[in-house]
Amino acid sequence: MTKKLLEAQNISLTIEGKHILHNVSLDIDEGQIVTLIGPNGAGKTTLVKVVLGLLEPGSGKINRRKKLRIGYMPQRLQVDPSMPISVKKFLQLAVQARPENIESVLQEVKALHLLTSQVHALSGGELQRVLLARALIQDPQLLVLDEPVQGVDISGQAELYALIASIRNKHRCGILMVSHDLHLVMSATDEVICLNQHVCCHGLPEQVSNDPAYLELFGKKEAEALAVYTHHHNHSHGLDGEVLDDKHSGHKHG
């Protein structure tokens, strides 16, 4: 059996005369983390929707493994404050949810203490963890994460990326992730695709960060900032910004 979960070939999409995607191809294997980066309006979210089957490509082909189970973490969830719903109930609504799953999945994303909290009252980082738990409940072969660290402060971001890497190691699922920047996703990523309507460049994170096309797209200054994020901290921060002892920290920089 092949390790390939999904294969997209030469996807193009035009919406109302605007070329959103042009000749984009990507593969995702079991246990592989593929990160899509690119500026705003590069078509990252559109490509994700095509991969999920929410949008039909104008041309090109998508082959998914038969009965592929996809766990999807949307970019944001806006629960109207008029709707009272606890994290527990929110997770119970997942199609595959079983009661014993809910607590173990919340434990895995380190959010078990939120079980009885109301969804509309969660902070950015807490909500992202709950959304990740919802995606994991489907026991996915492929996890699709659209900007998983949105609305999370910088130390919480590193922690979330470390969590995503550990999920890949534990579940051996493939992960397709959208990100604004390369800095923090570096260590966790196997393949980076730099998108700006078309694939500008792709490859290992180290290769992409030195690629002229990447430097042009993000500017040299931005690319140099990479160095800032590869130094070593003697402490790290928890999700809420509290300083953690390195012994207890969930991640390492660099």
Binding site: L52, G53, L54, L77, V95
Partner: peptide, 9 residues
């Protein structure tokens, strides 16, 4: 709660 999440599920 989320239309696209529902659709994917």
């Amino acid at each position: 709660l989320h239309q696209e999440l529902a659709q994917v599920e």
